[in-house]
Structure formats: structure tokens, C-alpha cells
Simulated scan of single mutants.
Amino acid sequence: MLPIISAGVAPGAALLCYFYLHDKYESEPFSLVFKMFITGLLIVFPIMFLQYTMHHEIIISSHVFEAFVETALLEEFSKWFVLYYMIYRHVEFDDYYDGIVYGVAVSLGFATLENILYLFANGLDTAFGRALLPVSSHALYGVIMGYYLGRARFKTKASKMPWLLMSFMIPFLLHGVYDLIILSFADNWMMMMIPFMTFLWWLGLKKVKLANRRSRKRNLVFMNQSKRFKDPPA
């Protein structure tokens, strides 16, 4: 049991640390980040119940429906809902990159428990592939969702809506494409997945750079550093 739990937790913890430490100007309170991670973990159970009910009560034999509705819509909307109502107006959400940190925390909480449950059902042999694909893809959906929430957070009231819409729609569409590749290309899905994951990592890391570049605290940090160099020693 312990090896499976360790293998299930390790990739999510590593990715969360990676994105947490890429905040160049001010780290978020770890207690709040951990709270969002646990919240992401807890929403696995209602989502699984809804997916089970939908799969057995709404009998639509379609890969598109399964990928975009049963999976992507339920999972990404649930994560978006948690972020919007628990973090979006929180006092600690005071910079663009903060959205990425909290988005990744919720997404990886979800992905970590999902990963543990999958490893219990299918064994440790699948752990490496799970870390490379589902866990990392969830982290990147969280990056993109959080980036656009961060853009919305600091827009005027009249111009928030397009950014809020993108914060849900883009991760939702990317997640749907990911699942559609797996469902539709049973024999050679990896040939499609490699370029898709390459694009997803490129897009996620681009949002990380943009969020840090747009930081509301960047100029303040540079001003403090310049002042320190200019001030004569006491």
C-alpha cells in the first residue's frame, strides 16, 4: 500500500513544488496552497459519482460526448468553480502568478487522488506513464486556468468576462482533446499524444513566463533593489 501511495503522490508533489517555486516575486502562503490542494483532492468523489451516473443514465455512445462532457466538462468546471468561489476574491490573490499557483494546487490535488486510485486498480507498472501524461496534463490545465483567472482578477469590471470565460473554456477544450485522442486512437494514440503534450507544455510554460513578466510586484522589487544599491552604507 505504501509504495502505491508514494508513487501516486510523488509526481503531483513534484509538479506543485516546481510551479510554486517559479513565483519570482512573492511566494503564496503554503497553508493556503495546501488547503487548495486538499480541496482539489476532495472534489474527486462527487465528480466520480456524477461521471458514473452520467455514464450509466445518459447512454450516448460517442467518444466526443465521453471526452468533452463526461470528463472534461465535469472536471474542469469543478476546478474552476472551486477557484472562483474560494480564491478569486481572496486577499492573498494579489498578483497574476498567484492564479497559476492556486490553479495548479487544485488541479494536482484532484490528479493526485485520481492517480492513487488508478494505481491501486492497475498496479505500479502504470505509475511512470501516469506521471508523464494525466498528472502533468492536469497541472498544465491548472496553469492555464490560473493564468486567465489572474488576468481577469486585475481587469476593470467591464472587461473581466472574456478572461473569466477563457479561464474555463481553454482548459476545458484542451482536456477534451486529450481524452478524445486516447479514446479515438486506441492503437496509435501515443503518436498523437506526443505532439499534443509538447504543445501543452509549451503553452503552460509560456503562461508562467507571461505571468511573472506582468507581475504587479516586479517594479517594486526592482525599485527596492536599486534603492539598496544606491543608498550609502551607514
Rank of each mutant, 00 (worst) to 15 (best):
G176P: 03
V177L: 05
V177H: 06
V177W: 04
Y178G: 11
Y178T: 12
Y178C: 09
Y178N: 11
D179C: 08
L180R: 05
L180Y: 14
L180H: 12
I181H: 09
I182R: 06
L183T: 01
S184L: 02
S184H: 04
S184A: 14
F185R: 08
F185T: 00
A186I: 14
A186R: 15
A186L: 12
A186V: 15
A186T: 14
D187P: 06
D187N: 15
N188H: 12
N188D: 15
W189A: 10
M190A: 15
M191E: 13
M191I: 13
M191H: 15
M191S: 14
M192D: 09
M192F: 15
M193K: 09
M193Q: 01
M193F: 09
M193R: 05
I194L: 13
I194P: 10
I194F: 11
I194W: 12
P195E: 09
P195K: 14
F196G: 10
F196P: 07
F196C: 08
F196S: 02
M197A: 11
M197K: 10
F199Y: 09
F199P: 04
F199Q: 07
L200C: 07
L200V: 07
L200I: 11
W201R: 04
W201D: 05
W202Y: 14
W202V: 09
W202A: 11
W202E: 01
L203P: 01
G204Y: 02
L205W: 06
L205N: 04
K206D: 10
K207P: 02
K207L: 00
V208A: 00
V208R: 05
V208K: 02
K209C: 01
K209M: 09
L210Q: 08
L210F: 06
L210G: 01
L210N: 04
A211Q: 07
N212W: 07
N212G: 03
R214V: 06
S215L: 02
S215H: 00
R216E: 03
R216V: 08
R216H: 03
R216W: 01
K217I: 07
K217C: 06
R218N: 09
R218Y: 01
R218W: 05
R218L: 07
R218D: 08
N219Q: 15
N219H: 14
N219T: 13
N219L: 15
L220D: 13
L220V: 14
L220P: 02
V221R: 09
V221Q: 08
V221S: 10
V221M: 13
V221N: 08
F222G: 01
F222S: 01
